[in-house]
């Protein structure tokens, strides 16, 4: 959009990340943004979704390159850990910046 020959930046809503914007995925990313790494079960409990819903949403975030999934063990029990990738963290920060702009009116 241009006015009088100068280009105006688009509305902040255009800078919202489509992958992160979905409510469940936003909650997942917000939880992971506060940590270096978190157990799958912790994220499931924080976001209040079932294992299958979380798996599906995590797959979407993983395909976007925003989330890394690591599998391992604590004692003999298998565990899955989730973390944000560098691009995922950058996308989340950018998403938050757009939200702040919208929130500010």
């Amino acid at each position: 959009m241009s006015t009088g020959g100068t280009t105006r930046p688009g509305h902040a809503r255009h800078r919202l990340d489509d992958v992160i914007h979905a409510p469940v995925r936003f909650s997942i990313v917000a939880t992971l943004a506060a940590v270096d790494e978190a157990e799958f079960a912790l994220v499931r409990d924080e976001v209040e979704v079932s294992d299958s819903v979380l798996s599906k949403q995590v797959s979407t975030l993983e395909q976007a390159g925003y989330v890394r999934v690591r599998k391992g063990y604590v004692g003999k029990r298998p565990r899955t850990w989730l973390s944000l990738t560098r691009p995922g963290r950058a996308a989340y920060e950018s998403h938050l910046a757009a939200l702040r702009e919208i929130a500010g009116g």
Partner: peptide
């Protein structure tokens, strides 16, 4: 169940 941000480093 988690490592808070930068805690591990």
């Amino acid at each position: 169940r988690s490592w808070p941000r930068r805690a591990r480093t």
